[in-house]
């Protein structure tokens, strides 16, 4: 994926020169290893800052929200599905965006990589499916495939589903991925055990809302947790309020979440709140055969009614 950058720069530069778009949203190098940070280019010269490698996990669809300009945006498979969701939800018009598609082989799990070293990581380089990681206690060459973010490891749509131009040839999708092994494990737990599982999962939450704010779907002008008239949920770190926030946020993403992993990646406390959204994603597949963000012309299951919608839960 390192090779994409020349093509990304070429396309972006052309779009800005020709005035096709007013800005291109991409990534620039961050100040820490394995961290690239979202940025924009408004002139062809700005494009020089762009980078592309296996540390561009942040979902750029989140940066389109409420912008008025004509925008070029670099989109991986998951980003493109979030963009499709924004378009079907009338959040943005297809014509307002120029999608530069970036077929993706998966982004790196920087916490997992950090956990393989005793000391802090100083630099990371990548080369042909390998990562060369230098830490205070030495250098290791690691297989990228073993260090994918959890959502990337089970990704079934690596290629952008919509694009105006591609930065590289499409990649082969992963076959025989079992997306829901962990969800099934929780489904088999008795209620009390499930309760304890989620109690423990969210025990470290500090209510900073990084998960919500990193999520491209959480674009409500006022989130229900911020409402004060009426106040739906308390604002302290009371465990019931904290869980209410996480449960309801997940439900608000049902049938919309593309498992881009933004929430989990953003969490400063390492909480895997994807265990909630994945369950709802699985239910949407089981009940409606629905995977979000794949088709601009299909309405999501929760805003349409079909004669064959399952109703065996109605007794």
């Amino acid at each position: 994926m390192v090779g994409y950058i020349d093509k990304i720069k070429e396309i972006s530069e052309r779009l800005l020169k020709e005035g096709t778009v007013e800005m291109v949203i991409g990534f620039q190098k961050g100040t820490l290893p394995m961290m690239n940070t979202p940025c924009f280019a408004k002139t062809p010269e700005d494009v020089g800052n762009f980078v592309w490698d296996s540390h561009c996990g942040i979902n750029l669809a989140n940066y389109l929200t409420d912008r008025k300009e004509k925008i070029g945006v670099i989109a991986k498979g998951c980003d493109s599905r979030s963009i499709v969701t924004h378009i079907t939800e009338n959040k943005i018009k297809r014509e307002q965006i120029f999608v530069i598609g970036a077929p993706c082989k998966g982004m790196m799990d920087r916490h997992k990589i950090a956990s393989l070293f005793e000391t802090e990581i100083r630099s990371v380089a990548e080369n042909d499916g390998k990562l060369i990681v230098t830490a205070g206690d030495g250098e290791k060459t690691l297989e990228k495939a073993d260090l994918l973010q959890k959502n990337c490891a089970v990704c079934a749509h690596r290629n952008p589903v919509i694009h105006d131009e591609l930065a590289a040839d499409p990649v082969e999708d992963q076959k025989d991925v079992d997306r829901y092994a962990d969800v099934r494990e929780i489904e088999t737990m008795p209620p009390a055990e499930k309760w304890d599982y989620f109690d423990d999962l969210f025990s470290a939450c500090i209510r900073c809302y990084a998960c919500r704010n990193a999520c491209p779907l959480c674009y409500c002008p006022t989130c229900f947790v911020d409402e004060s008239q009426p106040q739906w949920v308390g604002k302290s770190t009371d465990p019931i309020d904290t869980k209410t926030f996480h449960f309801l946020r997940a439900y608000h993403c049902a049938g919309r979440c593309t498992d881009c992993g933004s929430c989990e990646r953003a969490c400063p406390m390492g909480i895997n709140m994807r265990m909630l959204t994945k369950k709802l994603e699985k239910d949407c597949i089981d009940a409606f055969g629905w995977e979000p963000g794949l088709d601009l012309n299909q309405r999501p299951p929760l805003d349409t009614y079909k004669m064959d919608d399952p109703e065996d839960f109605i007794k």
């Binding site: 209620p191 009390a192 055990e193 499930k194 309760w195 304890d196 599982y197 989620f198 109690d199 869980k243 449960f247 909630l276 839960f313 109605i314 007794k315």
Partner: peptide, 13 residues
């Protein structure tokens, strides 16, 4: 999420 299924019920009436 740990709430017993028996607490939830849907019917057409």
């Amino acid at each position: 999420m740990g709430i017993e299924p028996g607490r939830l019920h849907f019917s057409w009436i």
